[in-house]
Design a protein around this nucleic acid. Structure first.
Lengths: 188, 188
DNA sequence: ACATAAAGAAACAGATTTGTTTACCTTATT
DNA sequence: AATAAGGTAAACAAATCTGTTTCTTTATGT
């Protein structure tokens, strides 16, 4: 059981490929060849491709949010600084060499059905991110912290898509500028 | 030649299905059955599925921007009002019964290759939208109109994704509030 | 070293994909 | 009415997709 388990490695590979090429466009065969894992082993761990997608999204949700929060708290010391550090972390993310937008936004684009588990986990991810920002806003003694969280999260979404589609390397800074105004007004 | 040409009808159907179900998930057979057009006819008009996708995006680009600009100018009378009307138009769009996010954002999620024509047209669409907003900002005598256009476009992207993924019906209003601040500061 | 469990390789099945081709039908125009 | 264009329907091809199965190899624990 030690060693990077086949299961984990499959999920890792799935995240990489689904991010870059999308969900439908990434075939099982290709994924398995990339991971160097046999089909039998995969179907032993996951009942279907959709289950693998789901597991990949779960893992990504956990890892991404953890790293994101750590990075934010590394940059920002005061709660107010942390709120703005969100966009510094975003900037690093966007201008890295393997940025293909948000896995969850992309997932919703391919799986729009209302009751899909993929839909649900994507929505949930955004809710958890909102919860984190809301917590930071509370810590910063923002009276209307919910409204500020709404605004900052929307700015983050906007910067992600702007970086992805328009490929504007300034996306994070544009958002940060508006975030500064939002925080300033929320604290006034 | 029947009145609504087969070509136009195919494009119309393509837009509807690609919007709702995505690009890879929408098979040619299904599209043709929905449109009530034979396969032969389709391949007479479009050399491949990708060409049909491209034509659909072209058509959508034209129709969407035209309708969008008309709607904005219907609501806002002064240039400054028009800048904010963007988000009223967005609100109507989001809360309509067939909103599945932005076709171009979704397209990039499925076709991330750098040199793809699908990528190019999506990027171009955003550029044209930016150009429109930039023009409005100029008309409103905003000194740094480019920066304001950057901000308002990012807010629009953010509201689209927030409405699509988080399904927050307030998305447009949250963005509008920040847009008001942005315009106010740009005019100060 | 041996027994047992796990993984790989590859064939296979069945559905579905894009795209081509063949044969027939409908309809406008001359 | 004959012709020609443009349409449908359906069979077909070849590739690819998800998922199953079989047989073999490789590790691991005792």
């Amino acid at each position: 059981m030690p060693r990077p388990s086949r299961r984990d490695h499959l999920i890792e590979t799935a995240i990489t490929l689904f991010c870059e090429h999308g969900y439908h466009a990434t075939g099982i065969d290709r994924l398995l060849a990339t991971a160097g894992v046999s089909k039998k082993t995969m179907y032993q761990h996951f009942r279907s491709k959709e289950e693998l997608i789901y597991a990949a999204l779960q893992q990504y949700d956990s890892v991404f949010r953890n790293n994101f929060m750590k990075a934010v708290e590394d940059i920002g010391k005061t709660p107010e600084e942390k709120l703005l550090a969100i966009f510094d972390v975003a900037e690093t993310w966007f201008n890295g060499n393997k940025f293909f937008g948000c896995m969850f936004i992309n997932a919703i684009g391919e799986y729009s059905e209302q009751e899909s588990p993929i839909r649900d986990i994507s929505k949930q991810f955004k809710k958890l991110m909102w919860g984190y920002v809301n917590g930071l806003a509370k810590d910063a003694c923002v009276k209307n912290h919910k409204a500020l969280a709404d605004e900052l999260c929307l700015l983050l979404e906007g910067s992600i898509v702007t970086a992805q589609v328009s490929q504007n390397p300034q996306a994070a800074f544009i958002a940060k500028k508006m975030a500064q105004r939002a925080v300033q007004e929320a604290l006034a």
